Amino acid sequence: MPVLIEPTTALHASWLAAHDEWGPGLHEDGFGLAASDDVRSPAGFHAWVTRLTSGSAPASAGATGPTYRWVVEGDEVLGGIALRTGPRDLVLRMGHIGFGIRPSARRRGVAAWALGRMLTEAASQGLDRVLLVCEAGNTASAATIEALGGVLEDAPHAHDDVRRFWVTTL
């Protein structure tokens, strides 16, 4: 049974295995990974995890930084999920919630389970509805979002390569 946990340096090897499974690039939404983050070395990984857990990620006045959680089963990192509450331009571009599940853990309901938990967290932070954004061709993420009540935004937007969904929190 998976659990959501705060990022931890204790799972460095497991996180790297998940990261390597995705292949090169920055495509694990939900992990708060930036191109400049050194996640290979123990010191770099520690600095990255400290940034994620300290709330030092950017936030607007009155908003908290993102809440990052890892989806873990036993000692295996299955994925990550983030709740972003500010700044507004970041939320409008990337969504309130972003998630990524490692390829070997997909098609097991892990993403829907984690998204359901994060919707509850969003409600506890006072959000009545949240925006989720996925690539237009990512039918699996779109189906997961729709299964949890996501309604496709019909307003035109500048990025036709993405789909934008609004979800009422639980």
Rank of each mutant, 00 (worst) to 15 (best):
A47S: 15
G62A: 09
L78F: 08
D128E: 15
E73D: 15
P24H: 08
D38L: 03
V91I: 11
E21S: 14
A57P: 05
T8A: 14
T85S: 14
G25T: 08
R69A: 09
T9F: 01
G65E: 11
W15K: 02
A140H: 05
I101M: 11
H19R: 15
A43P: 01
P87Y: 09
L115Q: 04
A34G: 00
D38G: 01
D29N: 06
T64R: 10
V72T: 11
F45W: 12
V49H: 09
V71C: 02
G80Y: 07
L92M: 12
L33R: 01
G116L: 04
V39C: 06
P103E: 03
W48V: 04
A59T: 10
P58R: 13
A17I: 03
I81K: 03
H46G: 06
L92A: 13
D37Q: 03
E121S: 07
G98R: 02
V130C: 08
D29H: 05
G62R: 12
G32V: 10
M118L: 13
W22M: 14
V39A: 04
A136K: 09
E28F: 06
R40A: 14
E135S: 06
I81D: 02
A17F: 04
H19D: 11
E121W: 02
D20M: 07
H27K: 13
E135T: 07
T50G: 12
P87W: 08
T50N: 12
V72L: 10
S36A: 10
S124I: 05
A18I: 02
L127V: 02
R93H: 07
T8M: 07
A140W: 08
V110H: 02
G62E: 07
I81M: 08
G74V: 11
W70I: 00
A140P: 09
H19L: 03
E135F: 06
A13L: 05
R106W: 07
T120D: 14
D75N: 14
A18W: 01
M94H: 12
G32A: 10
V77D: 10
H46P: 00
A47K: 14
S36D: 07
A35I: 05
A59V: 05
P87D: 13
R108V: 00
R40F: 02
R117V: 08
A82W: 01
D128L: 04
D89C: 05
M118T: 04
I81P: 00
L90S: 12
R117N: 09
G98T: 01
P58Y: 05
